[in-house]
Write a protein that binds this DNA or RNA. Structure first.
Lengths: 355, 355
DNA sequence: TTCTAGTGGGAAAGCGCATTCCCGATAGTC
DNA sequence: GACTATCGGGAATGCGCTTTCCCACTAGAA
């Protein structure tokens, strides 16, 4: 038994397919109530489910929202995804998920796939990158997005515009003030922290990472401190852990002469890296904040149960997901920049330990 | 400018739409290489992207996999989603996401929406429930699934069959031996733990929770221990926290007379509840494992960085997602039960503290 | 009464594609 | 060389639905 069609419903109700369509799927024209009732009963008894593909084809719109993340199991993306999902539900749309661990090339494929499915809008949450090898892929991604927009699609990018993307109508950017927030964080930390600073960044060329690094350095400079050394590691927990093992050795070495330099303050450009870092330091027998201070960025939900409580910059992740989806959902405001704000949040990991 | 169509490509290449279709979208018949080349060039120059909706309509299949979870930001579901996503990519399909915080009613809607989109298969990861008010909704959900299967859809349910679902062809269950694993956990804990046991469960009627409770009790009984008291709270972190505040008071009261009873051992039926519980106890000034032992279930990735290290039952969550997707992807093995296994994993949270 | 405006329903034309069927041309067989 | 199989391409149909256009009919105005 194949799923029953609108035509079958119409026949059973003794009306034309046109009328059945008008009754069952909101149309401007409302058929008479007796007829409507008859159609509805017929649909019910047949267990009619409209074929969204056919509807989409006829109306050329699909009720689909494409979401691109690097890794859905990363708490950062998961939180954004939750926001997207919420807003999508409000708009009676469904979310189409794509994960792209592998950079612009995969993102381009995802955009093409979404375009093929005629998604109404696309939300790109993964961070943009301008790594040396990625120029071409980035250009292609931009071209793909451009084409998608010109065909009436709506795009919202979280954090940073896609390199080289034309400022087409339908192209939105959810602006996250990464740089300013990182600067504010640095300012706060500089106030209460006398020792050196160390920055653990993602790969060079990753905008989110670069912005935060730049901001942090600016904050330090404004506070009259010397620039911090920057280490580059993968932009995930493993990267943080890796960095941590290296840093742990340094810290120990520094302590050798005893009466060593003041405690190091480490800024990891996102929370998962900070968590990895903390894990590595702990494995090495170091304690936080006793032997080093650590701060992260994002304020992912995981931090709630992480100890020591991690200083970070709070970002309204779900809200970001909602805003992006909303922005990409209504063509009303045309192109434009949507903004969200964050907040420096100091916790125990950067407190000065009692002597 | 609207997206270009196959017909336009064909015209530009000077061939019929049929030929263009055969060239661009893998057909059994391969047109001559010169013609193929011409078509491909035409498609390229027009930036042709096939309309998946139309393809789906014509072929009546969509390349879509529907995934139903309670909350995509919950680490448990996020991990499963990652597995589903991986496998979907292998199958060149896309994942359609639905979150249903609200029980069978919403799940039914999600299934209907997936059916409307003609998803090739559906993976249901949220746990089944048989709460008193849910009978009707459950019946409807079962009916909806049944209809979906009869129309050729493939369904994979994680953990527990949907109540009342007919054993239709195309209906798969990924069996998780919750009960046995919980029993094994209880056995291990009974060996090293002398004091009383306490079980923090989810709402009554939630199968996953009930199975684990039953298993744990059985394990205790087999070890000659008296049955544990069971408390019911919401099946998430908040539920665990709530339970924790109540339990903290008990523990303190018990200690009042000093020389009180042996340390309590708490089994929370999933890790997020265990984490919430641990958080509440810590807030109340209690320490783990000094003042109480805690064990969870699932071994979510978050545990890796949680302290104290939580004893739990390891479940291969990503693998579960993959297996479910695979099972629901190939109609080869027909209906049937797919199995995964877990492993009791004892860590510090249930160790006996040094006196 | 006659004409117009308005109303409610149906017929039919797509939406973009896959696919069946058909047909001309070429190759192969005796 | 006549006949059949095979191949490569095109015409046409249909997937299930929306929407425009058209028509019959009723009601109101002159």
């Amino acid at each position: 038994m194949a799923a029953s069609t609108l035509t079958e419903v119409a026949r059973l109700a003794g009306v034309s397919p046109a009328t059945a369509s008008r009754v069952l799927n909101g149309s401007a024209r409302k058929p008479g109530s007796d007829i409507a009732e008859r159609v509805r009963r017929a649909a019910d008894s047949l267990g009619y489910i409209p074929n969204a593909q056919a509807q989409g084809l006829a109306k050329s719109s699909s009720g689909l929202i494409g979401l691109i993340v690097h890794d859905i199991a990363d708490p950062y993306f998961a939180a954004i995804a939750r926001g997207v999902q919420e807003e999508a539900r409000l708009q009676h749309r469904m979310v189409l998920l794509a994960t792209t661990t592998g950079g612009p090339q995969e993102e381009r494929e995802a955009v093409a796939a979404f375009a093929a499915r005629r998604a109404d809008s696309i939300v790109i949450a993964g961070s943009r990158s301008a790594k040396p090898g990625d120029e071409e892929a980035n250009t292609e991604l931009a071209a793909e997005l451009d084409r998608y927009c010109r065909n009436g699609g709506q795009v919202a990018v979280v954090g940073h515009p896609v390199v080289g993307a034309a400022n087409t109508e339908g192209y939105h950017v959810v602006k996250v003030p990464n740089e300013d927030l990182a600067a504010a964080l640095a300012a706060e930390l500089a106030r209460k922290h006398q020792g050196e600073f160390l920055i653990i960044g993602g790969p060079e060329g990753l905008f989110t990472s670069d912005d935060r690094i730049r901001g942090f350095q600016r904050g330090l400079a404004d506070a009259g401190r010397t620039a911090a050394e920057v280490l580059h590691y993968p932009f995930n927990r493993s990267g943080g852990y890796e960095a941590g093992t290296a840093v742990a050795q340094r810290i120990k070495d520094a302590h050798v002469g005893s009466n060593g330099p003041a405690r190091l303050c480490i800024f990891a450009v996102n929370d998962v890296m900070a968590i990895g870092m903390a894990g590595a330091l702990r494995s090495a027998g170091l304690r936080i904040p006793r032997d080093a201070a650590i701060a992260g960025f994002d304020d992912i939900e995981t931090l709630r149960d992480f100890r020591p409580e991690l200083s970070t910059v709070h970002l309204p992740l779900e809200e970001i997901g909602r805003v992006a989806t909303r922005g990409a959902g209504s063509t009303l405001n045309g192109q434009g920049t949507l903004a969200v704000d964050g907040q420096v949040t100091l916790r125990r990991s950067t407190e000065t330990p009692l002597p």
